[in-house]
Design a protein around this nucleic acid. Structure first.
Lengths: 186, 186
DNA sequence: AAGATCGTACAGAAAAAACTGTACAAACAA
DNA sequence: TTGTTTGTACAGTTTTTTCTGTACGATCTT
């Protein structure tokens, strides 16, 4: 992970143990970000690395194939949890962990939630329109009427929830969330 | 899913089509809640059902085993997305979808995020303590000093992020989030 | 130009997860 | 009591995901 030149075995051991605990905790809880424990572990490793790492170094450290490192890093790049580092005339690509976890958090949930909101709202609106049309063309039947209004009520409830969620996501995207819930303890 | 007594085939078809679109959209996007597409689908079905359902009814509707319904419902209960309904002298257990999606949202992320925060904070603090101790007992060595302060800085950064997240979760738990981001459009 | 090295696409192997059917304990009915 | 019925534990099967090794195009070196 890095050079421990001139440190006693004992010191190295203690440092690695402390890091390992954190790395494993991170790995275990990264499933909230929809990533594997391995990839979470990879992130944790990069987090503690003092200098950017190459795929080969990661593979050696994780005792996994370079291919897995490649796909893992790509996932982390997509999630903006890892950045590519440009170094003058370097043969290999270098990567480092994004240190700003607030940013990582808002990026991820901003993107994923928005995706879900958009897909669901489209479906809800389309179905609501269909049901409303049915409601208009068939004014008679009591039973039909009842079912339609019940379904539409549910759909409208869902839509109003998504409107709220959309506004919440806006606060993540814009950074306004940090005004509402300040980074520094009040 | 329910009785469509006295409705024309055509009407039933249109209603089911409208529901199906929504149910499938829900199923697809439920992975944010860490659940399978099948279980998401199950939730969607319960969402549109006008009366609480039994495991057998769910199994029939989903064309899946009762065992799967049992485990699926249990997951949804854990996430508080489904409620058990108590009916006078009923043989079978009855379940209904939680209709308040705001509540579902805050419950889920409240629970899951808190879990992650607690686990990670414990690890971070424990490791920080170890490193700080090492820092105190070994005042000399420059290289060791440097590594320790770098690691501790990273850990402190992470801890301050988790403090923020913890406060955000508090607003979910307490409902204060709805003051910060009102349910009704401003 | 040739030769070396890097990252990744792809196919197959290994591991994990989802799903099913059977079996059985608990709760109820007669 | 005995006979049903219900929910779930568990073992085995199927499906999905993760991981690996090989192969190859792209890029850099000489």
């Amino acid at each position: 992970m890095q050079p421990f030149d001139g440190l006693s075995e004992q010191h190295i051991g203690k440092i690695l143990k402390a890091r390992k605990r954190v790395i494993e905790a991170i790995g275990k809880n990264m499933d909230l970000y929809g990533i594997t424990q391995s990839v979470g572990h990879l992130y944790g490793m990069l987090f503690f690395s003092e200098k950017p790492m190459t795929l080969d170094e990661m593979g050696k450290e994780m005792e996994m194939s370079k291919t897995s490192m490649s796909t893992g890093v790509r996932m982390l790049l997509d999630l903006k949890m890892v950045n590519k580092v440009w170094e003058k005339g370097a043969r290999k690509d270098l990567y480092e962990a994004e240190a700003d976890w607030h940013q990582t958090f808002t990026d991820y949930f901003g993107i994923e939630w928005r995706k879900a909101v958009e897909a669901n709202v489209i479906a809800l609106k389309r179905s609501a329109a269909e049901l409303r049309q049915l409601q208009e063309t068939e004014e008679g039947e009591g039973e039909l009427r009842e079912i339609l209004s019940r379904d539409l009520e549910k759909i409208d409830g869902a839509l109003s929830y998504y409107e709220w969620l959309d506004r919440l996501i806006d606060t993540l995207d814009s950074g306004k969330i940090y005004e509402l819930v300040p980074k520094e303890k009040p």
